[in-house]
């Protein structure tokens, strides 16, 4: 039986279909989840996709965080359910306090959309085990509020405990502290990532296929669990 990976759609989500396609290409079954429902339908993992939930009103992710399904997700994530938040999903995870810190307006104040070189630094998480430590990949970034900020103590803790999952190379596209592109929670089941691995899963449409590893990682973990 293949693993079932849920993708939550909020009003204003854009990349839910791409995320579902990436799940399919990783040989798992994508399950569409609607934010207003109260049931995770027994999925084995969840992806919070990119986009502009609730039009980014108030703060990116601030309103989505209180969606009925998010309450269930927060509890499930604390119990170990693998959760990947991509871009807007990363913002929702920070607003939900499943991940520390916050994402603020890009330093340059422009929407940034580019093929971005990254270094994968933590391959112990549920979503990165198919990469090699230090592996460099090219994955698109496209965001308006991608500047990762946290207080010094939090940053120090993330750095010293190896919870920086991915870091920007060459150019820091949004001013994120310590070039942070992605982080994880203490247990490693919750990962937030500003770049979009679901846009780098097929040669036809991506700058690379190097994003697929995020999805195959979790599927392998679920199949072997």
């Amino acid at each position: 039986m293949s693993a079932r990976v849920g993708v939550i759609t909020f009003p204003g989500s854009l990349d839910d279909r791409d995320a579902a396609r990436a799940v399919r290409l990783a040989d798992a079954e994508p399950v569409s989840l609607w934010h207003a429902e109260g049931d995770l339908l027994g999925v084995d993992a969840v992806i919070l996709p990119g986009g502009f939930s609730y039009g980014d009103y108030l703060r990116a992710g601030a309103i989505a965080r209180f969606a009925p399904l998010m309450e269930k997700l927060v509890a499930a994530a604390r119990d170990g359910l693998p959760v990947l938040g991509i871009c807007n999903g990363f913002q929702v995870l920070c607003e939900s306090h499943l991940l520390p810190g916050a994402l603020t307006r890009n330093v340059g104040l422009h929407f940034v959309c580019r093929a971005q070189r990254l270094r994968i630094e933590n391959v112990e998480t549920a979503w990165t085990s198919d990469y090699e430590e230090g592996q460099e990949v090219v994955i698109p970034v496209k965001n308006m509020d991608g500047c990762y900020v946290a207080d010094e103590e939090t940053l120090e803790e993330l750095e010293s405990s190896g919870r920086i999952v991915a870091r920007y190379l060459d150019v820091n596209p949004n001013g994120s502290l310590n070039d942070i592109a992605g982080i994880c929670n203490e247990a490693g089941n919750v990962v937030g990532l500003m770049p979009h691995p679901e846009h780098a899963v097929e040669a036809l449409t991506g700058t690379s296929t190097e994003g697929l590893g995020f999805f195959t990682s979790v599927v392998k973990k679920l199949v072997h669990a």
Binding site: T104, R105, N106, V107, L109, C147, V149, D151, G175
Partner: peptide, 13 residues
Amino acid sequence: MLKPEILDSQGQA
């Protein structure tokens, strides 16, 4: 308001 230690890129602009 953003905390003083948080960069306010809009204010700077």
